[in-house]
Amino acid sequence: MSALPRFVRENSLTLAFGGGFLLSLVGQALAGHANFNNELIAENLHPVTFWGYLRTSDFAVDVTENWQSEFLQFFLYVFGTVWLLQRGSPESKVMHKAGPQSDEEQKVGRYATEESPRWAAAGGLRQSLYSRSLGIVMCLIFLLSWLAQSITGSAAFNERHLRDLQAPISWGAYLGSADFWDRTLQNWQSELLAVASMAILSVFLRQRGSPESKPVGSPHSSTGVEG
C-alpha cells in the first residue's frame, strides 16, 4: 500500500468530516450571499459581490455562532463525562469509575510507558495541564468563537439599525440584547439536546461496527462498552 492511500485510510474520519465542513461552509456562503442580496434589493440598496459578502459581519456572525455552540458541546461533554454517568450507555464510563481515576489507570507519572507522551511522564504543572488539555483547548475555542460572535453580531446588528435609520448601540449593550441571546441560546439548546439524546438512545439502540454504539448483542445495561 502506497504512502498516500495509507495516510488517507488512517486519517479518513478527520479527512471526511473536514471535507464535509469545507463543502458546507462554501454552500452556506453561496446561500447566505444570495439571501443577503435579496434583502438589500428589497430595501432598494445595491447588492454586494460574493467576495464582498465574505467580508461582511452578517457572514461572520452566522459562522461563529455555530462554531461556539459546537465547541461548547464538546467542552461540556469532555468535562462532564469525567463525573457524570449514564447506565447502559457507551458514551459513559462504567458506574464505579466516576472521577479522574488513579495515576496507574491513566498511565501518568511513574506509571507512564516509553510510548506515553512526554508530559504524561512529567510531574507538576506540565502533567496537570496535559491531563486536561483536550477540555482546556475546547473551552478556549468556545470562548474565542463566542467572543467573535458577539463582536460580529454587534456589527451586523448595528448595520441593520443604520439601514433603518436607527441609532447604533455599543458592544456592551449588545451583550445584553435579545438578539445576542436569541442567537446564542437557540444553538445551545440544540447542542445539549443532541448530547442528551445520544447518551440515552445509545442505551437501547445499536449501530453495528461503530465505536459510538455497543455491540449489537450487548445487554441494555452494559455501560462503557464500545462495538
Score class of each variant (00 low, 15 high):
Ser57Pro: 02
Ser57Gly: 05
Asp58Asn: 08
Phe59Thr: 05
Ala60Tyr: 01
Ala60Trp: 00
Val61Ile: 05
Val61Gly: 04
Asp62Arg: 02
Asp62Ile: 02
Asp62Thr: 10
Val63Glu: 01
Thr64Tyr: 06
Asn66Ala: 03
Asn66Tyr: 06
Trp67Asp: 06
Gln68Ile: 04
Gln68Thr: 09
Ser69Pro: 06
Ser69Leu: 08
Phe71Gly: 01
Gln73Val: 04
Gln73Gly: 13
Phe74Ala: 00
Phe74His: 07
Phe75Thr: 06
Leu76Met: 14
Leu76Asp: 02
Leu76Phe: 12
Leu76Ser: 04
Leu76Val: 14
Tyr77Asp: 00
Tyr77Glu: 02
Tyr77Asn: 01
Phe79Ile: 10
Gly80Asp: 11
Gly80Tyr: 03
Gly80Cys: 07
Thr81Arg: 05
Thr81Gly: 01
Val82Thr: 10
Val82Arg: 14
Val82Pro: 03
Trp83Arg: 01
Trp83Met: 06
Leu84Pro: 01
Leu84Asp: 09
Leu85Arg: 14
Arg87Ile: 11
Ser89Gly: 09
Pro90Ile: 00
Glu91Ala: 09
Glu91Ile: 05
Glu91Thr: 04
Ser92Ala: 11
Lys93Asp: 04
Lys93Glu: 05
Lys93Gly: 01
Val94Phe: 06
Met95Lys: 09
Met95Tyr: 10
Met95Ala: 13
Lys97Pro: 02
Ala98Thr: 08
Gly99Asn: 06
Pro100Glu: 11
Gln101Ile: 10
Gln101Trp: 10
Ser102Trp: 13
Asp103Pro: 10
Glu104His: 08
Glu105Cys: 02
Glu105Phe: 06
Gln106Ala: 11
Val108Thr: 14
Gly109Asn: 07
Arg110Met: 13
Tyr111Gly: 03
Tyr111Arg: 08
Thr113Leu: 14
Glu114Met: 10
Glu114Phe: 05
Glu114Pro: 09
Glu115Thr: 14
Ser116Gln: 08
Pro117Gln: 09
Arg118Met: 12
Arg118Asn: 08
Arg118Ala: 14
Trp119Leu: 15
Ala120Pro: 00
Ala120Glu: 14
Gly123Ser: 14
Leu125Asn: 04
Leu125Ile: 14
Leu125Arg: 01
Leu125Val: 15
Arg126Ser: 13
Arg126Gln: 15
Arg126Thr: 07
Ser128Ile: 12
Leu129Gln: 03
Tyr130Val: 09
Tyr130Arg: 05
Tyr130Trp: 15
Tyr130Lys: 06
Ser131Phe: 04
Arg132Asn: 12
Arg132Asp: 03
Arg132Gln: 12
Ser133Phe: 12
Leu134Gly: 09
Leu134Asp: 04
Leu134Trp: 07
Gly135Cys: 08
Gly135Met: 05
Ile136Lys: 05
Val137Cys: 02
Met138Leu: 15
Met138Tyr: 15
Met138Ser: 00
Cys139Asp: 00
Cys139Trp: 10
Cys139His: 03
Leu140Glu: 08
Ile141Pro: 06
Ile141Ser: 02
Phe142Ala: 10
Phe142Gly: 02
Leu143Gln: 05
Leu143His: 04
Leu143Glu: 02
Leu143Cys: 09
Leu143Gly: 01
Leu144Glu: 03
Ser145Pro: 00
Trp146Val: 13
